[in-house]
Amino acid sequence: MTLLAVERIKLLSTRSPWWCALTALLLTGGFTALVVSQSNAQFPATVSATQYAYNFGMAVIMVLAALAVTTEYRFGTIRTTFQAVPNRAAALAAKATVIALIALVIGEIMAFLSWGLATLIKPEADLALNSAADWINVAGVGPACALAAVVAMAVGILVRHSAGAISLVLIYFLAAENLVTLIPGIGADIFKWLPFNVLHKFVTGNGESAGGAAYGQPLSTSTLSQWWALAYFAAFAVVLLAIAIATARKRDA
């Protein structure tokens, strides 16, 4: 508990998490407002449409997570941290926990803010959360962001440089994974199992939250069920974090 408090003080006593949180909210809120206000009979406002921009918010949260650890390397405070807490595994695990919790909170606020905005803009649309798929599509954004933040933090520990870690995480998340589908023959099969594609499956499922409308978020090609998709991505995040922590323990700080 002590270590969690330490990491909480560290994270919240700098400005970047606040700016990242604000950016994530403005980006997703603004995008949702835009999409929903343009909806019509052909492209109806659905629960799925309210979360159209969750990816962008998640990207910002991943930047926050990567920065939380790379700035420690950049400013040398990681050495002060390991000096105060020589058990590096415990210190970094605590950090991952705090970052995941903060990402969870920002993710939930982001998702429900978007959904709330949409219901205000289109009160006549059917945006009630009345199925499991609807609930996961909105409330699931939080856990998805939490796990994505752990992945970004693990990359941050491994790479140690802000610019390097952020570009690696963002390029992979926003571009590289989709580019895999372009590999002839096997591309689509590999893509099915790539982590962020699977995570998207957890959030959007088979499109039930889009109310059968063709218009909504592009769906994941993963064949896993929603909960297995979450478990798959969680395992990916934990393994990556374990590798990062093992590396940090061996390395000179």
Partner: peptide, 14 residues
């Protein structure tokens, strides 16, 4: 080895 945007007190507090 101090985060430039953290206050002296916050640095010592953690």
């Amino acid at each position: 080895w101090v985060h430039p945007n953290r206050s002296a007190r916050a640095h010592l507090s953690w």
